[in-house]
Amino acid sequence: MSESAVSLYDRIGGARAMDAAVDLFYRKVLTDERICHFFDDVDMERQAAKQKAFLTMVFGGPNNYTGLDMRKAHAHLVARGLNDSHFDAVVENLGATLKELGVGDADIAGIAGIAESARNDVLGR
């Protein structure tokens, strides 16, 4: 396998690195006034596990999520008004997390692209 074929997920340390990434990312999301109200009533541990699954996916790690999973998981939030501005805020927090983890700009752009591909499913369109 050539260097470039190794996923960013493996390059930054795989499953273990995800724990650190989730802590950083979830903390940003919970303190972002644009979106934190969506997380008021959630079980934090479950939510952290879901965020880890999300990060694993965008980092190119193993995942089996489908567009339908994304739709189902966010339908109740769409009903509460989840829209493009909130999605943008999450992507912004994701970018900031990656920067803190020392991920390069090219990789960050690639990851933002993967997250972007889920936009319509997440927003139920």
Partner: peptide, 10 residues
């Protein structure tokens, strides 16, 4: 179950 990847802990 959910992710089937050892991540989501479901």
């Amino acid at each position: 179950y959910s992710c089937r990847s050892g991540v989501c802990q479901t």
